[in-house]
């Protein structure tokens, strides 16, 4: 192949150019958890106790801006009194290397069962949240987060 006179090398070395042009799409795949792994963790915690969908507002972005820092806000509806409050909240993800993300322990002094954090997501996946009430009842919620390669907008 000939070189041109334009001052631009037609064949610039590819070696060092193998950078993250489309990082997320081209990253090697890790061994990742799945739905079954999340179910197994839940079984360890609560055996086969029934769960009801609801009472939890699981706020995650529909599309992650950065898979390394994805905002996660959990808000569980509860009067947060000594007699009736949220004891624990567990959050899982079905597409990360490990299914667990976090566990929160709340008390009536928390005032409300609401907390925000930021998490890493390896790929598009579903976030699962389970809340345990002071009377032992369990509630659950799910939300999907899309992790995209981006680019080409506007």
């Amino acid at each position: 192949m000939t070189m041109t006179s334009a001052g631009i090398t037609r064949r610039q070395a590819i070696g060092s150019a193998a950078i993250a042009v489309f990082a997320a799409a081209l990253a090697p795949r890790l061994a990742l958890a799945d739905e079954a792994a999340v179910a197994a963790e839940l079984k360890k915690l609560y055996a086969d106790k029934p769960m009801t969908e609801g009472r939890i507002k699981l706020d995650v972005p529909q599309i992650a801006e950065n898979g390394l820092v994805v905002p996660l806000n959990v808000d569980v509806e509860s009067p947060m009194t000594a007699a009736d409050h949220v004891k624990a909240v567990h959050v899982f993800a079905d597409g990360n290397p490990l299914p667990q993300i976090l566990t929160y322990r709340f008390t009536p002094e928390s005032g409300k069962a609401s907390a925000s954090i930021r998490m890493r997501l390896a790929q598009t996946q579903t976030i699962v949240c389970v809340a345990e009430m002071s009377d032992g009842k369990l509630y659950s919620a799910k939300a999907g987060v899309k992790v995209t390669i981006g680019g080409c907008g506007g």
């Binding site: 064949r11 610039q12 799409a25 081209l26 390669i149």
Partner: peptide, 19 residues
């Protein structure tokens, strides 16, 4: 200028199309 496999090209087109 870089190497991409046919599979990676498909992933890129699918991802952009979904956007």
């Amino acid at each position: 200028r870089q190497q991409m496999t046919g599979e990676q090209l498909k992933t890129i087109l699918e991802d952009v199309a979904d956007n």
